[in-house]
């Protein structure tokens, strides 16, 4: 018989189809495994349809001692998962801002700062009216990005228009139409799929990219690189973020005190979609 496998659990609450569209998680998991697999710890990824099923998974994993720790993603303000894993005594690491984690260790990408950098990048190129197409407002990282962009826009005297999407292509199209009412000369999107929707919608409105409107995507991907024109993107080393999360997880499993682990800085890769 095989020895019991030491493992870390990662539950993603979304349709199985959506996981396939999000390169972020594939690269994140790859990074986790580069550190964890050599130490004999595996990563069990479970895709469930909603948050209720997610919480049930943690309950069952704890009851049957199937995982030695869990990684929590996409936190909302006052997220009940933080209390749940503490009650279940599951070592946990949060991918997100320390302010949401109530004392759990976090791996933190400074969303506020990158949102500011994106606005600065566009302001430097002469843009005075910028649209921001964000992800769902229920996520903390969405709010941090919106607040960061707003703060930088005010500092630089840029007028910022904001619209909300749910990372899907369809939501990106609808939000673009909303943003266009304010006549922006640049649009920043919270993921690559919505940025592709922006490109298509602008084309239908006879607006040239980047001649009339510049477009920047959050998270670089093959889709960004193959888009016409190729999308400028805020590029994170997501594999590296996964490696750092794995280190944080090993520390948590060893009973080390919680810490904030800083993700490596992102940078903007300028391609053909910005002037």
């Amino acid at each position: 018989m095989a020895e019991a496998q030491r493992r870390v659990g990662l539950v993603l609450a979304r349709a199985s189809r959506v996981l396939g569209e999000e390169p972020f998680y594939h690269e994140f998991i790859e990074g986790l495994e580069r550190v964890l697999t050599p130490t004999g710890v595996s990563v069990l990824v479970k895709v469930v349809t909603d948050r209720e099923a997610e919480n049930e998974s943690y309950e069952r994993w704890a009851e049957h001692k199937r995982v030695s720790g869990v990684i929590l993603v996409d936190l909302s303000p006052d997220d009940d998962r933080v209390e749940l894993v503490k009650r279940l005594e599951l070592p946990a690491v949060v991918l997100g801002a320390p302010s949401t984690a109530f004392g759990l260790p976090t791996v933190w990408t400074d969303d506020t700062d990158y949102a500011r950098e994106a606005i600065r990048f566009l302001a430097d190129r002469g843009h005075r009216v910028v649209g921001q197409l964000s992800g769902p407002l229920s996520f903390v990282h969405t709010r941090l990005r919106r607040d960061g962009a707003q703060a930088e826009a005010e500092t630089l005297g840029v007028s910022l228009i904001q619209a909300e999407g749910d990372y899907s292509y369809e939501s990106g199209r609808a939000a673009t139409v909303e943003l266009l009412a304010g006549k922006p000369t640049a649009i920043v999107c919270d993921n690559d799929v919505m940025a592709l929707a922006v490109l298509d919608t602008l084309r239908e409105h006879d607006l040239a990219v980047p001649g009339d409107v510049s477009v920047v995507a959050w998270d670089d991907s093959g889709l960004c690189q193959l888009a016409v024109p190729a999308l400028s993107a805020i590029s994170h080393d997501v594999v590296r973020i996964g490696e750092i999360a794995a280190k944080a997880m090993l520390d948590a499993m060893a009973g080390e005190p919680p810490a904030v682990y800083q993700a490596p800085p992102a940078h903007i890769v300028a391609r053909d979609s910005t002037t």
Partner: peptide, 21 residues
């Protein structure tokens, strides 16, 4: 040196995944 385990639903969407030594 590793085994990748995957479970998919009827549309081919991934519902579970694990790599073990």
């Amino acid at each position: 040196e590793t085994l990748t385990c995957v479970a998919v639903d009827l549309t081919g969407g991934v519902v579970g995944r694990e790599v073990v030594p």
